[in-house]
């Protein structure tokens, strides 16, 4: 193929693993086992988790163009499913997370029926509204969800209940989740189905004329994205050991889902990961240093940075990197 094979590219070509990705994986593995202060480990746990979640969102949002601002609903459904199974029926989360994923996929299918034909702002607003319906339902269905008081998981460490004393275990768990999301994305990236997603995203009519059913493709992409998001929600619950509807199903959470891939680079496998590796630690550090001093200051700084980043790097970090490597490659 025409891409110069000898060049080490920063942003990997479609369907291949780059040196950059392997280096990043090694770094992640080191972070899992390295003796790091606990508060930093907490940040890394969240970074891995959000990288996995953003990767899941990207399958729908970046690859298929389904810009969802309702992913908090899938996240919440996953979190509540495994937690309710554990707290009320004593089902181990090792089973529960998959149930959460399945239920989220099912809800993804319902959402697809509602809004997979819609475009642009109509799609965005419908997903926002659907997530609000789920949030209000969770808030008011107290017998199941505990309502606004929320649900708590017993903090006693017990591997059967997926509750661990060691942060290393959580790091490994979240990295495993990230790798699952990432592997699925790479699989899609290099396959025929990946191209179908791109086609449905870029031009519905042309996709149809090429024999691709854009609505079916979008539905499958949304279901897959929802399933992965649901699994991530369960893991989040197992890490925080507490859930309430505003905590997990708020529009802010949905916003985070879309933000990380947008900053990292939409529709690239590596983009959401880079987005989370940059944004999650930054927002956590801002929160811990400034959050206690002046209420709102850290989020004000964070959002101002966000505005600047999206305005000046519209194709994200991955786009900026591949532009950089393209320029370098052009000279050689």
């Amino acid at each position: 193929m025409a891409q110069s094979p000898g060049r080490i590219s920063l942003a990997p070509a479609r369907g291949t693993l780059s040196v950059f990705e392997i280096a990043l994986l090694v770094l992640c593995l080191v972070l899992v086992v390295a003796p790091i202060p606990q508060n930093l480990q907490d940040i890394i746990v969240l970074t891995f988790l959000w990288a996995g979640l953003a990767t899941a969102w990207n399958i729908a949002g970046g690859y298929t163009g389904l810009i969802s601002f309702g992913h908090a609903a899938f996240f919440g459904i996953g979190a509540y499913t495994s937690t309710i199974l554990l707290v009320r029926m004593n089902v181990t989360p090792w089973v529960g997370i998959w149930c959460g994923g399945l239920l989220a996929a099912f809800c993804g299918a319902i959402l697809a029926v509602i809004c997979v034909r819609l475009r642009g702002p109509f799609f965005i607003l419908s997903t926002l509204a659907a997530a609000e319906v789920i949030r209000i339902a969770a808030l008011n269905w107290s017998s199941l969800t505990g309502g606004p008081e929320g649900l708590a998981i017993s903090p006693a460490a017990d591997p059967v209940n997926m509750v661990f004393a060691s942060k290393h275990a959580y790091l490994a768990l979240m990295l495993g989740y990230l790798l699952l999301s990432y592997a699925l994305t790479k699989l899609i990236d290099g396959s025929r189905y990946g191209y179908y997603l791109f086609a449905a995203r870029d031009d519905e009519d042309a996709a149809s004329a090429a024999g691709v059913n854009p609505l079916a493709v979008r539905t499958v992409a949304l279901m897959l994205s929802a399933a992965l998001t649901g699994i991530g929600g369960s893991l989040f619950a197992q890490y925080f050991l507490y859930l309430d509807p505003t905590f997990v199903i708020s529009p802010e959470v949905s916003f985070q889902f879309a933000l990380l891939p947008a900053v990292g680079g939409l529709g690239t496998a590596i983009g959401p990961v880079l987005g989370s590796f940059l944004i999650t630690p930054m927002s956590e550090l801002l929160r811990s240093y400034l959050g206690s001093k002046v209420a709102g200051l850290h989020l004000a700084i964070y959002s101002a940075l966000l505005i600047v980043v999206v305005l000046y790097f519209p194709s994200g970090i991955a786009g900026a990197l591949s532009g950089l490597s393209r320029r370098k490659g052009g000279k050689s």
Partner: peptide, 8 residues
Amino acid sequence: GLSIFMQN
């Protein structure tokens, strides 16, 4: 982003 900024 502006919305979050203004809120905070």
